[in-house]
Computed example of a mutant assay.
Amino acid sequence: MTPDEYCQQKAAQSGSSFYYSFLFLPVNRRRAITALYAFCREVDDVVDECQDAQIAATKLVWWRQELERLYNGKPEHPVTQALLPVLTEFSLPQEQFLEIIDGMEMDLQQTRYLDFKALSLYCYRVASVVGLLAAEIFGYQERKTQKYAHDLGMAFQLTNIIRDVGEDARMGRVYLPIDDLQRFGVPVADILNARHSDNFRRLMEFQIERAEQYYRQAMAELPASDRKAQRPGLIMAAIYRTLLDEIKRDGCQVLSQRTSLTPIRKLWIAWRTWIKA
């Protein structure tokens, strides 16, 4: 299996909505974004699948070392081998890959966030930085597109948090800011014990509106001249905003279920968005 095939398999197996946004890209950009996505999956899996935090931390140290080898032209892992030709073609800085690992390390160090400011740093590292790297791969002419990519990454991560409240709680993690929980009268114990209430529904509707605000900001910031190049992000936004609509329509039952869209529906949204953009 070649490094590119490894990354393709990693992306396809994940079932992520991101996979559908890559389908219509030219071969070189599709190969690059798939390698970036595979890197993100590898380091994320370290945290999600490793039960021992110390072992997970050691593995992330290895990935930091592997990035050093990558930027010295001597990568060992299939994902970094696939990334090697991408670095110079699209000018991807090492610091941003390291920021992604910083974000993953936050999951090993804390399971609560006191306020949205604290959560924003986490979202920036695990999602906005990925958005900035992706924007380089897709291509842009105006610097304002970087602001679009940053805010779109924030919106995506907030959507992930909303969708995965129950799943995260079962791993002992609560990403919803503590001051938001207090504002809406929702004890952390209700999240951890999957106790749905009217207060919880109102809390989640507030979280959905915050995510929507970032989507609106991002769309307003994207220059018309870069719209076609950035279509993969627009596809993801269309899929994720549809997902938020479904969650809200279901009464925000995210403690007991994980709302998702069918592959055929994602493909339809992707195709429709690509044609319209």
Results as ranks from 00 to 15, higher is better:
Ile269Gln: 08
Val126Met: 00
Phe200His: 04
Leu132Trp: 03
Arg241Ala: 04
Ser120His: 13
Ala155Thr: 00
Lys10Arg: 15
Cys40Asp: 03
Glu49Ser: 10
Gly172Ser: 04
Cys40Glu: 00
Asp168Lys: 13
Tyr148Asp: 05
Tyr20Ser: 14
Leu121His: 06
Arg31His: 15
Ile162Glu: 02
Cys252Ser: 03
Gly131Leu: 01
Val43His: 02
Pro177Met: 01
Leu119Arg: 07
Gly166Ala: 10
Val186Cys: 00
Arg195Thr: 06
Ala149Ile: 07
Asp4Glu: 12
Phe39Arg: 08
Arg227Ile: 02
Val129Thr: 13
Ala32Asn: 13
Pro177Asp: 03
Gln96Ile: 05
Ala229Ser: 08
Val186Phe: 04
Ile269Glu: 01
Arg170Met: 12
Glu5Asn: 09
Thr262Gly: 06
Ala238Cys: 14
Leu119His: 02
Gln230Trp: 12
Val129Ile: 11
Phe39Met: 06
Leu23Val: 15
Leu176Trp: 13
Glu142Ile: 09
Phe97Ser: 07
Val47Leu: 11
Ala237Asp: 07
Leu152Ala: 06
Ser17Ile: 07
Ala149Val: 07
Glu105Ala: 06
Met219Ile: 06
Tyr214Ser: 09
Pro232Gly: 03
Ser197Met: 03
Tyr122Trp: 06
Glu99Ser: 13
Val46Ser: 05
Leu87Gln: 09
Asp179Cys: 04
Thr262Ile: 12
Lys10Cys: 01
Leu67Trp: 07
Phe116Thr: 10
Arg195Pro: 02
Lys266Met: 11
Gly166Asn: 06
Val43Cys: 07
Ile33Met: 15
Gln94Gly: 06
Leu121Lys: 08
Arg195Cys: 05
Asp115Gly: 07
Ile208Val: 11
Ala53Leu: 13
Gln230Tyr: 08
Val186Gln: 04
Val188Pro: 03
Arg231Phe: 07
Asp250Phe: 09
Pro93Gly: 11
Cys40Val: 11
Gln207Pro: 01
Ala218Gln: 05
Ile55Asp: 01
Arg64Tyr: 14
Ile208Gly: 02
Arg241Phe: 03
Ile178Asn: 13
Ala169Thr: 05
Arg201Leu: 05
Arg183Trp: 11
Ala56Leu: 10
Asp198Phe: 14
Asp168His: 10
Lys147Cys: 05
Thr80Val: 00
Pro75Arg: 10
Arg170Tyr: 02
Glu89Phe: 02
Cys7Met: 10
Gln182Leu: 13
Gln207Ser: 08
Tyr113Glu: 05
Asp164Ala: 09
Leu84Tyr: 03
Thr80Gly: 00
Thr111Asn: 07
Leu119Glu: 02
Arg249Trp: 03
Asp48Phe: 09
Cys40Met: 12
Asp4Val: 09
Asn193Glu: 12
Ala211Cys: 09
Leu119Thr: 00
Arg125Ile: 03
Arg227Pro: 04
Glu142Val: 09
Ala82Trp: 10
Ile247Cys: 02
Leu255Val: 06
Arg64Pro: 11
Val61Asn: 04
Val86Gln: 02
Tyr140Ala: 05
Asp168Ala: 13
Leu203Gly: 00
Leu36Phe: 10
Glu136Lys: 14
Asn28Met: 12
Phe156Lys: 04
Phe24Ala: 15
Tyr20Trp: 15
Gln213Arg: 13
Ile264Met: 15
Arg202Ile: 12
Lys59Leu: 10
Asp45Gln: 03
Phe200Glu: 02
Gly233Leu: 06
Arg183Ser: 05
Asp198Ile: 10
Leu92Cys: 07
Ala238Gln: 07
Phe18Met: 15
Cys50Lys: 12
Thr2Ile: 00
Tyr37Val: 03
Leu70Ile: 14
Val43Ile: 15
Thr80Lys: 00
Glu212Phe: 04
